[in-house]
């Protein structure tokens, strides 16, 4: 049962983008939220993630300004490479799952 639900809390929750990391050395099963007011490009979200959570997604994901091929990112269950990669639009309430194969058992 949800207790102490108030409109302000709801508004704050709805601003959150959920980020989950799988298979990334040092960050496997890591999850955190980023608060945004309006839709932003994924490249912008990477910067906000570092400001708000100290997780440097740019350091993890990017090489020469592009997402490294070994990462597989899903935005609300859909492949981000089909949505423009760094240009993909991320909205409040979205879920991003960032995957990398651990070792291939």
């Amino acid at each position: 049962m949800i207790k102490d639900l108030n409109p302000e809390t709801c508004r704050e929750v709805l601003k959150l983008v959920k980020i989950k990391l799988f298979g990334i050395p040092g960050f496997h099963l890591n999850r955190f939220n980023i608060s945004i007011e309006n839709p932003v490009a994924f490249s912008e979200l990477i910067k906000l993630a570092f400001e708000q959570s100290s997780v440097d997604l740019g350091e993890i994901l990017l090489k020469d300004g592009k997402i490294e091929k070994k990462y597989f990112i899903l935005l609300n269950g859909k492949r981000i490479d089909e949505m423009g990669n760094l240009e993909a639009s991320i909205s409040p309430g979205d879920t991003l799952i960032i995957n990398r194969m651990l070792l291939g058992g």
């Binding site: 799988f22 799952i97 995957n99 194969m101 651990l102 070792l103 291939g104």
Partner: peptide, 13 residues
């Protein structure tokens, strides 16, 4: 995470 920890990654790729 063992080998099973690969499941989310393999599913997504």
């Amino acid at each position: 995470h063992g080998t099973t920890g690969d499941i989310p990654g393999c599913d997504s790729m």
